[in-house]
Computed example of a mutant assay.
Amino acid sequence: MDATDATTLYAELDRRSAAVAEQVIAWRRHLHRHPELSNREGATAELIAGHLTSLGLDEVRTGIAGHGVVGVLRGGRPGGRVVALRADTDALPVADLCGTDFASSAVDRDYPGGPFPVSHACGHDGHTAMLLGAATVLAGVREQLPGTVLFVFQPAEEGPPVTEAGGARQMLAEHALDDPEPTMVFGMHLTPHPKGHVGYRAGNQYAASCLVKITVTGRQVHGSTPGRASTRCRPPPRSSPASASSTASSTPTTRSPSPSATSRTSAASTSSASASPSGAPSAAPSRATWPTSSGA
């Protein structure tokens, strides 16, 4: 394609983009009014597949990773490059507070952990509408395009329920991008830039979330006695040798204790305060000396 052909093509793309703009807005508002949670995007996928089919694409693949859709457009000019354009389609389990006449009132009563209000609070309605618009424009100039374009609509970008597979990983596992394999992939996310501006960079742009599963093993205790949760500590017996000897020695008596009684008292008192080399009490401490934090 020479410079003249390219200039002509760019002008045609601009003209067609302007012509489809109102339809993109209508798609976006429809999707905003009818959001669906991750792995539940059935009606959204039906709308997407229906429009891609109406454009006469070479292929429209559905049911990928649940409700994923891939459209394949092969250009009329020679070229081996394959460009993938990707949009996400799922919504979030939050209430819609936008206050417009196309605000969502959807509630998913069957979703795990629900019921949940549902809204497109992350802009995926806009992403899906824009990609439908791009497919419309590019399909209209297919004879002038070298190479192939893939239109990839990914479900469950926000993450499927923990007991289900889904999202980009599952689409790849189901060979969504194997034939043809893209040489470059473009994704776009709405962000509060000034109108008419597009930001871009090579590499990572946004953060992502992941599921972390933690198993905690321990002893359940009341919040007022966290020290008892330690595996090195044990609750004191109802009557320990230390408390018994202390009570006996404090009782008034007219005769002196025998040497053997004195030895027993001293030994009991010493053992209640001594510790093993590991730091754990060598005998059960009395309530007065119970470690509430050092053993935790």
Score class of each variant (00 low, 15 high):
residue 199 G to I: 06
residue 165 A to M: 04
residue 149 V to P: 08
residue 171 M to W: 00
residue 135 A to W: 13
residue 163 T to P: 00
residue 215 T to W: 01
residue 120 H to C: 12
residue 150 L to R: 09
residue 177 L to Q: 01
residue 170 Q to N: 02
residue 165 A to Q: 10
residue 210 C to K: 12
residue 162 V to K: 02
residue 113 G to H: 11
residue 119 S to H: 05
residue 114 G to S: 05
residue 189 H to V: 08
residue 193 H to Q: 12
residue 131 L to W: 04
residue 151 F to I: 10
residue 168 A to K: 07
residue 173 A to P: 00
residue 138 L to Y: 14
residue 156 A to M: 04
residue 198 V to M: 13
residue 154 Q to F: 04
residue 122 C to F: 07
residue 123 G to T: 07
residue 115 P to E: 03
residue 155 P to N: 05
residue 172 L to H: 00
residue 210 C to R: 15
residue 197 H to L: 14
residue 139 A to K: 14
residue 187 G to C: 04
residue 187 G to F: 04
residue 115 P to F: 03
residue 137 V to L: 08
residue 205 Q to R: 10
residue 164 E to H: 11
residue 172 L to F: 07
residue 169 R to M: 07
residue 143 E to M: 01
residue 184 M to C: 14
residue 211 L to P: 00
residue 208 A to C: 13
residue 183 T to F: 01
residue 207 A to L: 12
residue 164 E to D: 15
residue 203 G to H: 12
residue 167 G to Y: 02
residue 168 A to E: 01
residue 179 D to P: 03
residue 192 P to V: 03
residue 132 L to R: 09
residue 136 T to I: 02
residue 154 Q to R: 06
residue 159 G to Q: 02
residue 144 Q to W: 09
residue 175 H to K: 14
residue 197 H to A: 14
residue 196 G to P: 10
residue 179 D to H: 15
residue 152 V to T: 05
residue 214 I to K: 02
residue 173 A to R: 09
